[in-house]
Amino acid sequence: MQPFTTLEAIAVPLDQPNVDTDQIVPARFLREPRQIQAEIYFYDLRYDDEGRPRPEFVLNQPSYNGARIMVADRNFGCGSSRECAVTVLLDNGFRTVIAPSFSDIFFNNCFQNGVLPIRLDADRVKQIREMLHFSPGARIAIDLANQTVLGPDGKTDHFAVDSFRKDCLLKGVDDINLTLSYEGDIAAFEARQRETMAWLG
């Protein structure tokens, strides 16, 4: 996993609430390899029924080219647990999503892939989205160590992140390797459980 320390990049505003993972990767593309999934992300929002790009959709607008930060609305990533909803963002350059709230599974999946989900106050997120619409191509700077977001208006917001997840991201540490270092604790737990819940085997 690639570490995440700081990021200064163009941000793209996505106004809809409850953007579900079927919008990010429609189910009919789930069996495709990761490389193809990266090309079809947000397919039904980016293209119309005849496969023509919808110019009004924000990810089709050239002024946001090269964006690496997505600023979304409440309950982003709700719905299915499909992890490709995170990897398609990553593979299209996005390392951060800022939103008032995320679905729990999507939120967890972000940390597994080196993507930083940032929760900020709903009014502030709305304000940032408005700025990004008003000045397409405006940039945001994120500093994970200091837990700050520097908005396009020069205002700094502090965000909360679990220190466990923060450390893993800063170092690019993989969960499985970390957990295997607790093998003694896991084996001890299993030994205890064999006595208290023998029927589980």
Partner: peptide, 8 residues
């Protein structure tokens, strides 16, 4: 859970 956690 997602795929990474499944593997975990």
């Amino acid at each position: 859970i997602g795929t990474s956690e499944v593997a975990h």
